[in-house]
Every structure is written in C-alpha cells, then in structure tokens.
Write a protein that binds this DNA or RNA. Sequence first.
DNA 1: CGGGTTATTCTCATAATGAGATTGTCTCAA
DNA 2: TTGAGACAATCTCATTATGAGAATAACCCG
Lengths: 244, 244
Amino acid sequence: MSEAEFLAAYDPRAYPAVAVTVDVVALTIRGGGLRVLLIRRGEQPYAGRWSLPGGFIQPGEDLPQAAARELAEETGLSDRVHIEQLASYGAPDRDPRMRVVSVSYLAFAPDLPDPRAGTDASEAAWHPVGGTPELAFDHDRILAHGLERARGKLEYTPLATAFAGDTFTISELRGVYETVWGVPLHAGNFHRKILSVPGFVESTGETTESGGARGGPRAKLYRAGDARLLHPALLRPAREETIR
Amino acid sequence: MSEAEFLAAYDPRAYPAVAVTVDVVALTIRGGGLRVLLIRRGEQPYAGRWSLPGGFIQPGEDLPQAAARELAEETGLSDRVHIEQLASYGAPDRDPRMRVVSVSYLAFAPDLPDPRAGTDASEAAWHPVGGTPELAFDHDRILAHGLERARGKLEYTPLATAFAGDTFTISELRGVYETVWGVPLHAGNFHRKILSVPGFVESTGETTESGGARGGPRAKLYRAGDARLLHPALLRPAREETIR
DNA sequence: CGGGTTATTCTCATAATGAGATTGTCTCAA
DNA sequence: TTGAGACAATCTCATTATGAGAATAACCCG
C-alpha cells in the first residue's frame, strides 16, 4: 500500500476523541505588583469560577497561534507580548466533559490595559499573584508552574525588559526583578551587574524628564540590548530549601 | 442548567477530532558517545523511516504514564530511568493523516540494553547523536530540542548521575559531561567543582578494583547525593554565538 | 532652604573559575 | 623487570564575579 493509498483509506475516528486546548498564563506588572490575567467562566463546567484564559484549538491553527489568539481575545493586544510554551497537562479526569489535553503558554508584557471579556467569558481581570482565588480545572498548578518558569527565566535571559516599556531606567528594571522574585535587591550591585552583562541593555543617551516621585536625581534611560542570554547569569539569592 | 445536566447533554463530537501522541527522546551513553533511541517505522505514513519512539495516548492514561509505557515497550526498562516533559508540537500539517498534537518527553538512563522492537515498529536501535538519518514527521526538531534541554539540565541539576551507574568515579562523571556537551573539560577543576557542590555526590569509601584501562591509579567511588539543584551551577564554557 | 530619597560610583572582602603544575599509583609493552 | 605513559587527586596563582557597605551628588517636597 502506498502512502497515498493509505491516507485515502485512513479513518480518523478509529482513535479515541481527545480535545486540545491552549491555556495562557499572562503576566504583567501593575500597581507595583505582579498580576495574572484571569477569566470568570460563564459556562459549564466550573461556571462562575476564575480560570486562565484559553480555549480549544481551531482547525488549521498552530499551537502558538492559538495561544496568541486567546490572549488577544482578552487583552486586545498581541504586539509587544513575549509568549512561549510552558507545559502540557493531560490527566484523564482534568476536565469532566471529556479527555482534554491542555498546552499552556506563558506570556509577559509591560503594563497592559484593562482586559475586555471574550465571547465565552463573563469577566476578565488582572489578579495580584498570591491572592488569586481557587481556579477552575488544574489551573492553579499551571499558574504555579508559570510563575516558577518566569522567575527562572529572569535569571538567564533578558526577559525582564519585556515587562518594562521601550525605554526604562536601571531602577525600573530592578523593580521588575524585585516584583517577580519577591525579594529586595542591592541597588548598587544590581546596577553594576546590569551594565557589566554584554548586550543586556544599551544606553539611549537620554535621562528621565525629572527625578523620582520622592526625590533623587534624573536617571539614565536604556533600551533592551541584543543579547538573548545573560552571561554571566543574574542569579536569585539561593534559598537552601529549594536545593534539596 | 446544573453542571450535571450540562455534562449529560454534552456532545464531545461537537469539537474537531484531534489525536494526541507522546514521543520520547531517550538518551543514553554507549560506546563512548551519546545515543538516541530510534524506531524504524513499519507502517504508513513514513514507512521505513526512522522516528522517535511514541504513539497515541490510551484512554484513562496520563501523559507521563503514556511516555513511560512507550519507552518500556521499546527498551523493556522503566526503572532507573529519569523522564520529564519536553514540549508539545501541534502544527496542523505535521502528520498527514489528521490533526495530531505530540507531547514530547525526554528520558535519560545509564547504558541501556539493546532495544527490542515494539508492536508497530519493525526495528529499534540506539543511534549515535549527530549521525542520525532524517527522521519522520518533525522529529528532527524534537530531537534537537531534547538535546539542547539535556545539555542545559546538566548545568544546574545532578542529572548527569542518571547517566552513570549506581556508583561512579569523578572521571566517569566528567565523561558524561564531556560526551553530552561535546567539549573537553579541565580534569582538576572539574574534580574540585564536583566535590565543592553540596549534595552532588557522596563518597562510598570504596575505590575501583583496578586502575584505568590505560593506566593510572584506582579512583574513589561515589554515588549520587541528595541535591536536586546544583549550587553554584556547573556552567558550560560560554559560546559567544549562543548569547546573541 | 533643608531633610529625605534615589541614581550612580567606589571600596574591600570573599567566593568561584580557568589554567597550569605536581605527586604518586597503575597498566602496558619493550 | 622496568620504563614510559596515563591518570586520579591535590595544589598554586591570577582573574573574575559577588555581597555588603559607604560616598557623592542630584532632585523632590514641605
């Protein structure tokens, strides 16, 4: 049997039906804290519960495309957003309707506008991370995974600049790290480090229009550099309990 | 409508049929080189071509379970094998039969026995990495991804010990790093580093029965320690081209 | 104007790394 | 049997990276 003959005779229904969804952990920094985009479900199952934005993949649509679409449906934005695959979840009972495998994506963006509700959701909002309600499906686990990935990514990639605007000060960048990691960093050492990593940031030659809200001199402005990896990496203070 | 009523009325066929497979990048060290487990396909499509071991998930089976099953079908082993999720691939045309989303897994194991062919494969073998034939589907891309992940994991986890036996010498461990990374390492510095990272290895108090095949003294034997992360990490020599 | 705030730069101690050399044990072949 | 070469293990020394603290000066606000 040739490949053409085989395909003509092939019956897709011979395999058990599985649905594939994408779910997006979209993170931004707002109001001085890290926030995640959540949707209040308007339909069964878990109607009324908060969940990550997501939905079934469409025919002819690639996975990253589906993730970008789901995010755009809620935020209106698809530009300036970094998006990457996180992991997949496929426990047989994770969705009571049927067998559903979810491919999760992680998205970072600078301070985004208020979301608008999509078609199948009754409400959408940026929730402060750490104070999120119990989510639908296994989305709590996906969110936790996304947060851990985001924290790790800041260490060895210039991703923090994706949370900042087009230009930013070293202090703003430090604020991103402190917010995502949840730890205070030594301002002087951070400053030295950022400028010593090749390609992390490049100077615009400009400074801020005025000093900080509570005083201090004008700060120099930078934009993201051309590095894709930070070398040497910018490591979080090690926590003993995570090692063993 | 209550959730129970909703579920009773729910029709899974309303969604487009998608099949989900798991594919496994199984790596071992044999004959002084890194090798990957490949299967020669016995059925259409891509009959006769080499591919990663994998197959459709079964009803009621979780994803890691499916990956372990596929690996065990080819190698007979499921014990002593580290297995972790790699990524998912879902381009609409990646399988000519139908829409297939593949969840890939990465597996490491010490020198494994010769594989045996599974039910839907005509042949299975450990192929030296770097000299693999063109693979079926998008498996070349998955393999490349798996290799890069494996190389990175050696940096900050004690995973290298998963390639070694129950006990091993520092030189054998160095051999794992050199094989997977493809670069020679400074023996003295490596030795110092391994012993200085807390929990990486612990001494058994024993030594090898004899010296090396080509001479040299007996080496002390170690076993894997209790660390889950290496701190500080054991970084590869930086290659400028990977940073930008 | 003056105190408090913050950007930026320095200093100094300590930790980690890269490169090379030394010592002594072992295998193999002449 | 012996000498050459291989190699485990340890050490030295220069360089780089990090952590902690302090100094300087610009800027806000009351």
